[in-house]
Write a protein that binds this DNA or RNA. Structure first.
Lengths: 128, 128
DNA sequence: TCTGGTTACGTAGTCCGTAAAGATT
DNA sequence: AATCTTTACGGACTACGTAACCAGA
């Protein structure tokens, strides 16, 4: 499993369509995306989407995976930001929390805003 | 950036040596590992290690990156576990916390133990 | 001079895009 | 019949391994 799989998965989950996610968000071909999602499901050993002629829909496993996948991607961004900021000694740390099960689409954006507004603070993620 | 970069980085950070990490932990060649670490540093735009004739040592940026990288990898594991467990409805959720700056080498192992002992509980990570 | 990291280069694995097929409404 | 996903296949990118080179103690 690579971060590419997580990025692809989140895009498909948010659009509900392989075609739309591939063309409008990932700028890749739809068959390639289909294969990557299948590979991810094989590795996780769980069906993450249920397919239909109208698109794809998250399964219970997919919903569970989505929350963690978003957190993982946010954590990677946090890693990069923290490393870049470490040159200038950070003054304070700040943790952004959320409740499992809630919609956390806003989380990456919230982290971005906080970092822009408070460049000296080390903003990280916290699940509970 | 891909998860491979994070896995490689953590292995090098923990062994303090490209050679040992490559041969004993990653089972890859040392030059290939050197290149991947360099690529990671290029993408993060920060020096993560200081090289010497005795091995490599984490810089301040590297230390900051390490905590977040471990968290991200743990979160990916949590994603897989949560997806697999979602077939059987989870009963309770449990968050494992830590303090930034402390050593969190134990965290992945602690999560594994808790999951083995409490298979019905959804164990996640929490930084603060 | 020995240990450890870097550079060079050819190979192989795999990700991607195009084309065709399958399935469901 | 139209829409969306899957399968098939050829090309291109890149990660890997081997070999040679470089630097510090």
């Amino acid at each position: 499993m690579e971060l590419r799989h997580l990025r692809y998965f989140v895009a498909v989950a948010e659009t509900g369509s392989l075609t739309i996610a591939a063309e409008q968000r990932l700028h890749t071909s739809q068959p390639s995306l289909s294969r990557q999602i299948r590979d991810l499901e094989d590795e996780v050993r769980a069906e993450l989407f249920s397919r239909s002629a109208r698109g794809v829909e998250l399964t219970a496993s997919g919903k569970a995976f989505l929350d963690h996948a978003r957190l993982a991607l946010a954590q990677v961004d946090a890693a990069t930001e923290a490393a870049r900021r470490a040159a200038q000694p950070a003054k304070q740390a700040f943790a952004l929390g959320f409740q499992t099960g809630e919609e956390i689409t806003w989380l990456p954006r919230a982290m971005q805003i906080l970092r822009d507004e408070l460049p000296d603070i080390d903003v990280t993620v916290s699940s509970s």
